[in-house]
Simulated assay, not measured.
Amino acid sequence: MISAFAAHAAPKRVVSMNLCTDQIAMMLAAPGQLISVSDLAQDPRMSPMSSQAAAFPINYGRAEEIYLLRPDLVLAGEFASGPTVAMLRRLGLRVEVLPPAETIEAIRHEIKHVGALMGREVAARALLDQFDQELSRVTASRTRGRAALYYANGITSGGNTLAGTILRHAGFDNVADELGIRRTGTLPMELLVMSQPDYLITGAKWPGQSRSEAILDHPALSRIAPNTSHVTDRDWICGTPYILRAIEGLNP
């Protein structure tokens, strides 16, 4: 349901403190309306809009800094710091918390929702029209085989996730679904090898960040679909129109 706040006058000073709301807000904001985005928005490893985000002051999701920006709307993600959101609300700020969008319908809803909150309904409709047209273009018309997602610590994503949505529209059956993993869960390497996927998609590695990524260098992985491997990137992180690039990137 759209918040009752959406019926009020369009906010003039909007702050986003979440990587995913950053992107939707940047796509929809009127000139000068968005006054700050999260620090992750400017990280090219995480954000497909890092160059656009460079034009905005950043915030680190701290209540003190956001309050001093004097926003009349704060956009936060569902997994934002609870104490920060609570403090901002106690200080009288309007904070809207958005859940992660992991399906096409959820992405469409989020665009409409943020458009209404920001008083940018016309811009939201235009973005939705463009999104729907491009989605029709990149969605596979046939099944292209079985794919497995495999990340650090042996984690995989099933059909009820954003990555699963991307796979489905690219025309792949998800090996995780065959194994009863519908959301995010652990996939033992033995099961991965025995499943013999046609396509292997691994997580992007961040050298020096975590030993959990060492599993992605296991020699067994190089023998699984060696000519059809792919690495997830910044287009896979958030449920925004940028998933269209992720879908298209899986096309031959």
Rank of each mutant, 00 (worst) to 15 (best):
Pro188Leu: 01
Gln42Thr: 15
Pro31Arg: 00
Thr103Ser: 12
Gln33His: 04
Thr139Ile: 04
Glu78Ala: 15
Arg13Gln: 06
Met1Cys: 11
Val74Phe: 02
Gln52Trp: 00
Asp233Tyr: 11
Arg183Ile: 07
Ala7Asp: 14
Asp39Pro: 01
Met194Ile: 14
Ile201Glu: 03
Glu178Ser: 15
Pro188Met: 00
Ser195Gln: 07
Ala101Asp: 08
Met27Glu: 09
Ala4Val: 14
Val85Pro: 00
Ile166Leu: 09
Ser16Trp: 02
Gly82Tyr: 01
Met26Asn: 02
Leu93Thr: 12
Val97Arg: 00
Ala6Gln: 07
Ser3Ala: 10
Leu93Gly: 06
Trp236Gln: 10
Ala214Thr: 07
Asp129His: 10
Gly185Pro: 05
Lys12Leu: 02
Gly171Pro: 01
Thr103Ala: 04
Gln42Phe: 03
Tyr60Ser: 12
Asn59Arg: 02
Met27Val: 01
Ala63Arg: 11
Asp177Ala: 13
Thr202Lys: 03
Leu40Asn: 09
Thr84Gly: 06
Asp43Gln: 09
Ser81Met: 11
Ala101Arg: 01
Leu88Ser: 11
Leu91Ala: 08
Asp198Thr: 10
Glu213Lys: 05
Leu28Asn: 01
Val15Ser: 05
Gly159Met: 13
Arg211Glu: 14
Asp173Ser: 10
Glu248Leu: 07
Leu28Pro: 00
Ser50Phe: 15
Arg137Phe: 04
Arg125Phe: 02
Gly185Asn: 07
Thr143Ala: 08
Asn251Val: 10
Val97His: 00
Pro226Lys: 02
Leu19Phe: 10
Ala126Ser: 11
Arg168Asn: 08
Asp198Arg: 03
Asn18Ala: 15
Ala101Gly: 14
Ala147Thr: 12
His169Arg: 15
Val114Ser: 03
Tyr242Gln: 14
Ile224Arg: 06
Ala148Gly: 02
Ala116Pro: 02
Gly180Ile: 15
